[in-house]
């Protein structure tokens, strides 16, 4: 019985830790499919986390999510204007956006909560059980007793897959990411597609940040995303730019983060820092194993010449 509880707890923790990553990675998948790599996704998550906290205090968790979506969208809009419209280097612009997000959230956070922080009395998302299914041994608790945002993320993954591979807008998106010249010749406005894909991607990253606060940690702290946005980028590669692959990869990384829980529950005395390192090392390993076999959008990261 002990084993069942531990395993069930592990699955639940894995899904919980994987959900913010999933949101951000789905957003980045959309963005990268348009040929844009947005390292500002880390910054979008961070402003999303803070906006989610402020919105959560103001009007409850759903208001928090909406505020986070808006904040993530705005952060990515700034990125998009610089990197897509003005054609500044995407990698460095993304780094700068993340840097700026650290500064902005720092200022706003201190202003709003002082140096003591927001405390822990933020209303978070309750876990919702799926009838019957949540009673499945081991997996049930983890997969079917989760906050609404988790179920929503899975639905979004499916919707994104349908959008990318089954609609004419998805076809246009892929064409832009693979060959902007060809897309332009087909009458597609490359810049518009990239702008929309980047901003919507940022919205998803913002929601990811809100998920971190409102469905996982329960409070905000400076720099609390701690590189999750960058891990999301690795997840996109590991998931081979396919929403369903990204879903699986995000769960895998959630599992890596939850290992600490598992090891502690099993009574192993391993320094916790090793678990802090693990997701990043796994991300590296994943990139190593996947790059070369899977191919990303051909025009990824290349600033396009004209409209």
């Amino acid at each position: 019985m002990e084993w069942v509880a531990v395993a069930g707890g592990f699955v639940a923790a894995a899904v919980r830790a994987g959900t913010p990553l999933l949101w951000a990675a789905l957003g980045e998948t959309l963005t990268e499919r348009s040929g844009v790599i947005n390292l500002g996704v880390e910054g979008a998550m961070l402003v999303g986390a803070l906006a989610g906290t402020l919105g959560g205090f103001a009007g409850g968790p759903w208001v928090g999510v909406i505020a986070a979506a808006g904040a993530g969208g705005v952060a990515s809009l700034v990125f998009a204007v610089l990197a897509i419209v003005a054609r500044a280097d995407q990698i460095i612009t993304g780094t700068a956006i993340t840097l700026g997000a650290v500064g902005v959230t720092g200022i706003v956070f201190r202003r709003a909560f002082g140096s003591t922080g927001p405390g822990l009395d933020l209303e978070t998302f309750p876990s919702v059980s799926v009838p019957l299914l949540h009673r499945i041994p081991v997996l049930g608790e983890g997969l079917f007793h989760q906050p609404a945002l988790t179920y929503l993320a899975v639905l979004v993954a499916g919707a994104l897959a349908w959008f990318v591979f089954r609609t004419r807008w998805g076809l246009a998106l892929r064409a832009v990411g693979e060959s902007p010249e060809a897309a332009r010749a087909a009458g597609i406005s490359v810049r518009s597609v990239q702008l929309v894909a980047t901003v919507v991607g940022g919205v998803a990253a913002g929601i990811g940040g809100a998920t971190l606060v409102l469905a996982q940690v329960g409070t905000f702290a400076e720099k609390m995303t701690a590189g999750r946005g960058f891990i999301a980028i690795a997840i996109v590669v590991l998931g081979r730019w396919h929403p369903m692959g990204v879903l699986a990869a995000a769960l895998f990384f959630g599992g890596a983060s939850a290992l600490q829980f598992l090891f502690q529950a099993m009574g192993f005395d391993v320094p916790y820092q090793l678990f802090l390192m693990l997701p990043y090392l796994l991300a590296l390993a994943a990139l190593t194993g996947v790059v070369g076999k899977a191919r990303g959008p051909a025009a990824l990261g290349v600033s396009s010449d004209e409209g």
């Binding site: 089954r166 609609t167 076809l171 892929r174 064409a175 693979e178 060959s179 010249e181 060809a182 051909a298």
Partner: peptide
């Protein structure tokens, strides 16, 4: 101006502005 990674059918769909 074809997209190398897409199929013949997808390129034709792109030219017509329809789904693949």
């Amino acid at each position: 101006t074809t997209v190398p990674a897409l199929t013949v059918a997808e390129n034709l769909a792109l030219a017509q502005g329809v789904a693949a």
